[in-house]
Simulated scan of single mutants.
Amino acid sequence: MSAPEWLAAECATIAFCWRVERVDGVAIGLTSHDRDLVFDGMVHRAAPGISPSAIRRSDGLEADSMDVTGALTHDAIAERDLLAGRWDGAGVTILAVDWTDPANRVELGRGTIGAIETADGGFTAELRGATAALDAPVAELTSPECRAELGDGRCRVAMAAGRRIVRIVAAEGNRLTVDAAEPVADAYGSGRLRWLDGANSGMAAAIDRSAGADMTLRLPPRLPVRPGDRVELIQGCDKRLETCVARFANAANFRGEPFLPGIDLLTRYPGA
């Protein structure tokens, strides 16, 4: 298929545009042009701008990739948000646009943001193409623990009663105290915490264990926490059959093989 006339013109008027949608729903548009471009109801800001590297596309099964660089000079992409992980896994669309008439544009690729590096007031973000998903395993391995996530389509446990909104009373490192006690012992262990207020708003954290009104996160919050910040606590599961039966009465949907012999079978012999 031949290229559009505006791409083949002797005096090219091409600008790159980058649309990014974070997992929390925030969407922005950026451009490599020296002024803002508006199309499809979105303003693509010239600051901080972007500079994509050579885009590698293929019709094979290897993963397509490219790098995008920019300067941290706009509130939309703050360095602390990059370091906090707000942009991790964000969906990205790269376009070549005729800046004299933005109706003329060609999509160059789609993907998600992978590794992000910051240095000297700028950033470099790797864009992983759709074929990168082919690197993921396509078949599950057997395991004594359940491979489903609590409340997902395979687990089928109703989670409406397993969520609770509370406020932070105190925070120190990866330990938090909230204003309501858990319903059962270690109810939120292996669960999730979503920040609804404060500097961490929109992000989530993994809960290691809980005891009463105290929560221990697997990692400290990425940004400062203040008393009064609201969080949503989501119950967890340690993925053992015993917990599935006793707490959730959900053995019929258990996605593990707790009674399948493991490699330790090779070490068993008479007199061991």
Score class of each variant (00 low, 15 high):
219 L>R: 14
28 I>V: 15
239 K>Y: 03
250 N>M: 07
232 E>I: 00
136 A>T: 11
35 R>N: 05
266 L>I: 14
83 L>P: 11
107 E>I: 09
78 A>D: 08
160 A>V: 07
255 R>G: 09
21 E>L: 14
184 V>P: 08
127 L>H: 04
249 A>M: 04
255 R>F: 12
26 V>T: 09
33 H>K: 12
157 V>N: 00
2 S>Q: 12
82 L>F: 11
140 E>R: 15
60 G>S: 13
120 D>K: 05
199 A>L: 08
51 S>D: 05
117 E>F: 01
27 A>G: 07
207 I>K: 04
58 S>T: 15
50 I>K: 01
2 S>K: 14
209 R>W: 09
81 D>Q: 12
236 G>T: 14
206 A>Y: 08
241 L>F: 12
200 N>A: 03
48 P>R: 06
168 I>L: 10
101 D>Q: 15
212 G>N: 10
100 T>I: 09
139 A>F: 13
253 N>A: 04
71 A>K: 01
116 I>G: 01
95 L>W: 08
217 L>A: 11
189 G>D: 10
11 C>R: 10
46 A>L: 08
68 V>C: 02
90 A>Q: 02
160 A>K: 08
197 D>P: 06
29 G>K: 05
112 T>Y: 01
215 M>E: 08
123 F>P: 01
221 P>Y: 01
122 G>Y: 02
215 M>P: 06
11 C>P: 04
138 V>M: 06
66 M>L: 12
158 A>E: 09
24 D>I: 02
268 R>N: 13
28 I>K: 10
154 R>K: 10
171 A>N: 06
126 E>L: 05
42 M>E: 11
271 G>R: 05
